[in-house]
Every structure is written in C-alpha cells, then in structure tokens.
Amino acid sequence: MSNINFIQKSNLFSYTATRCLRNEYYHNDCTLCIDTCPKGAFHIVRNKLTLFENECVECAGCIGSCPTEALEIESFDPNQFAASYQHQTHPSISCKTLTPCLGVFDVDHLLVMVLRSKSNIECDMSHCSGCVLNENGSMEKSIRSKIEEANTFLESVGFEYRVTTLDVKEEQADRRALFRKGIEKAKEVISEKGVVALSMTSAHHAMPDVRMPLKRILLKNSLKEHVSEMSQTALEGVSPLFFNKQIDFNACTNCGECTQFCPTDALFPTADKQGIYFMQGKCIGCGICEDICKPKAIISKEGIDLVSIAFDRAEQLVHYEMVTCHECRCPYPYKGGDPVCDRCSSFMANHANMFTMAKDL
C-alpha cells in the first residue's frame, strides 16, 4: 500500500484521493466503489478510502460507480469512448472486443451514447453471469441497474431510443485472464510509444479550478443538443440521476458552509454574499450540504427541469436583508420581528435569570 494520500496506482489503474467524496467531507459515507469491487480492493482506513494495490485486478468495473471520477485506468477512458461512440462502426459494446468490464460506464455515459448516436446501443451481457468478476452477482446487478436507470430516463422524456442488452449465453471464458492479456497489450503499446497520450478525462482533471465530473458535462451538452426533441422536459418526482434542493428561509442562518463544502459548486453564494444559488445540472446528490447544515434548512425537493440542467440555469433559493443586531451590533440575516439576532435571542432566553434585578427577587 502506498503511503501517499493523493494518488494510489496499481499498474495502469489509479485512485485519486483528493477527488473522493469521503476525503472532501469527513462524514460522507459513500461506499459505491467498495460495493462494486469484485475483489474487495477498497478499504476504509481512518474513515478514508484506501486502495490495496495487491488486491486490485485492474478490471475497471468500479470506475463507472464513482460520482466524482476519482477512479481511472490508463488503457481506457469511458468519457472519450462515450463522446466518440457515434462514430463506432459496430453498435454492440462488449468487454470481449472494445472495452474493459461494462462496469466502467455510468448512467451518464450510456445516455451520452444514446443521445449522440440517436440510435439504440447494445450492451453484451451474454457472459456476465459466469464471469470471474461476478462471483457474488454484484457486478452484473450494478450494470443492469445502470441500464434500467438510463432507459427509465429516456422513456420519461419521450426519447425513442434505448439501451438494449444481448443476453444469449455463450461459452464462458476466464474474464480475468482475458483482461490481464488486454492490460499487458496496453503496456506494450505504452512502452513502444514512450509517452502516454493524455486521455480526455485526465486533460479535464488537469485544468485549474475544475470540479465538475466530465461525464456530467458531456451529458449536459448532449441534452442541450436534443432537449428540443423531447416531449417532456419538466419531470415530476425524485430522480436518481438529477437532483433538486430547497432551503427553508426561516431555518437558514446564511452561514455559507453548504456553499463552501459543495464539491461541484452546485450551491454558491450570491454576489452580495447574502443569498444562495443552486444549479441542478451541477448537483451529484452527494448529500454533503444536507448533512453539514446545522439547522437542517436544506432538503431535497421533487421535480427537475431539463432545460435548466442542460443550460446551467441557476435558481436563487434564499436571500436575506442584512441588518445590525440591536444587542451585539453585529450584522445578521433579518427574518422579521425585533432586530435581534438568533444568538442574542437564544442567550437572553436561556439566561434570563442573569438579568433579574434584586428588587424583583
């Protein structure tokens, strides 16, 4: 195990701890990669996610599960593949030919491929049940869950194309051995070239002040191109793909902690620092804002607007008039009534006996 707490590598596979939600916020309990990894290579050490390199088989099946793209493999970039899928001559996506394990793709990638190609895409699942990476069935379950989620979204917006599956069983092969051969071949190519070409995702991460996962940017751009063709752009209910928030005006103290800890800047302050904006298209549903809010003023809200998501429209959730407290003379967000801040009101209520005059005893 590496002692460096930033990037851990197992040959071509890498985990960047600084992009992991568990490191972004100490109390975050995301376990998506742990639940997906067929070999149990991820462990929680002192509440931090750690990769045990000697247990990793570089199958790439965990990559699609990470909401912040903290996991990468040098031999394959799912974002690059999804962005250029429309130019593929064969519509079927198979780990035996074009890609590593199909777990490398997230719902975002599947939707990008369908939207940009304007056609059905086929995922070859014919050998998943007997694959060495699917010993407990979790990998196949994860892939099929993403396909179902993508199709549910496509149906809800009235888009005619879907993600299909090829389920005819074939003679099973040792998937681990096949992938090891692919890794060795990739190493040979890299060795011959001498310099590794920077993938689309790596180039994106190398840009300064970039916090949005590239897969979400690709999806928003794809929606932007086709949102006019969709029969439904305002969806009701709760979505597992996109998220909405609201803030209770009376409970919020305008402390700003939610905007400071938001990993994608989906929540950000107004120019005068007296209010908070929210962008649905940037929210990845990590739940950090709801957990860190002490008065529990932030809650999830039903309904999403695809136009706002595609074009990064921001909604002002709350805005306050700042006034000076008559007791402590400090500015605070005014919510009506006597101009006394919550801190002074609470102090006076809890320690009223200190202000009792001797003549009143």
Rank of each mutant, 00 (worst) to 15 (best):
T89Q: 14
E72M: 09
F105I: 03
H127L: 14
N54F: 08
T99Y: 05
F76N: 04
T97H: 11
D106T: 13
L51Y: 01
V112L: 08
N134E: 07
D106C: 11
T68Y: 00
T99M: 02
S142R: 15
D106S: 15
E148P: 00
G40I: 09
C131N: 05
M113N: 02
F105D: 04
L51C: 01
S142C: 07
A83H: 07
E135D: 12
M125W: 02
C30T: 03
E55Q: 11
L133E: 10
V107E: 09
V114N: 04
R46M: 10
P78C: 02
N47K: 14
C131K: 01
E140K: 15
L133F: 12
Q88T: 09
E53Q: 10
S65L: 01
S142D: 11
V57N: 10
L102E: 10
I63R: 01
S92E: 14
C30A: 11
Q86W: 12
C56W: 00
N134Q: 07
E72I: 00
T89D: 13
Q86T: 06
C101K: 01
H43E: 15
T50C: 10
F42A: 05
P78R: 00
D106F: 03
E53W: 00
D35E: 15
P78F: 01
N120S: 03
C59T: 06
E53K: 11
S142P: 00
E140P: 00
C131S: 15
D124F: 00
C131M: 05
H90S: 12
V45D: 10
L49M: 14
G137M: 09
E53H: 06
C37M: 04
E74V: 07
V112G: 03
E149S: 15
C33W: 07
C62W: 03
D108Y: 13
C131H: 02
H87S: 13
F42V: 04
T99P: 08
N136D: 15
T68W: 01
C37S: 07
S142N: 13
G40P: 08
K146S: 10
A41V: 07
E55V: 07
L51N: 03
E55Y: 09
D106A: 15
E74L: 11
M139V: 14
S145H: 14
V114C: 05
G40R: 08
L111R: 06
E58Q: 15
L110A: 07
F76W: 04
S142V: 08
I93M: 12
N120P: 03
F52H: 11
V114R: 02
M125P: 00
E69T: 02
